[in-house]
């Protein structure tokens, strides 16, 4: 759900239902890295509502597109973390001394 004015598309507040700090804070981070974003922040209006509001003000682009890009970037970062993690685990598995190689035990 988007709250913004019809004339100025560069500033909007987006309400995401059933989300919390997990997603909102991560996307706030990626958005603040984006040079097109002049301001970005999020709030949870009431702790017992499952809702977050994300406010975006841009330097000229449509807020919706910038938000979409923010999520896209977050997704790319996640994918990179996942592939790096899988590789690190595989590396660890190949380099770890085998459990069956207990030569010292009689």
């Amino acid at each position: 759900m988007e709250h913004g004015s019809l004339t100025d598309l560069t500033a909007s507040t987006f309400s995401l239902m059933d989300e919390d700090h997990t997603l909102a804070n991560s996307v706030r981070f990626t958005l603040n890295q984006d040079p097109r974003v002049a301001f970005c922040g999020y709030s949870i209006p009431h702790p017992s509502d499952n809702k977050v509001n994300i406010r975006i003000q841009t330097t000229g682009d449509t807020a919706k597109d910038v938000l979409k890009d923010g999520f896209q970037n977050l997704m790319i970062m996640c994918q990179h973390v996942r592939t790096t993690f899988d590789k690190a685990v595989a590396d660890y598995e190949t380099n770890r001394p085998s459990k069956h190689m207990n030569i010292d035990t009689p």
Binding site: R36, T59, H80, T84, E93
Partner: peptide, 30 residues
């Protein structure tokens, strides 16, 4: 500068590239 200008960069956002380059992960114990 940030308020008055839009900095145009190559297609992929710079921070993503540098993130992918600098991110490291090492398993210590499994």
């Amino acid at each position: 500068l940030q308020r008055s200008r839009v900095v145009c960069k190559a297609d992929a956002p710079i921070h993503l590239e540098s993130f992918c380059k600098n991110f490291k992960l090492e398993v210590i114990r499994l």
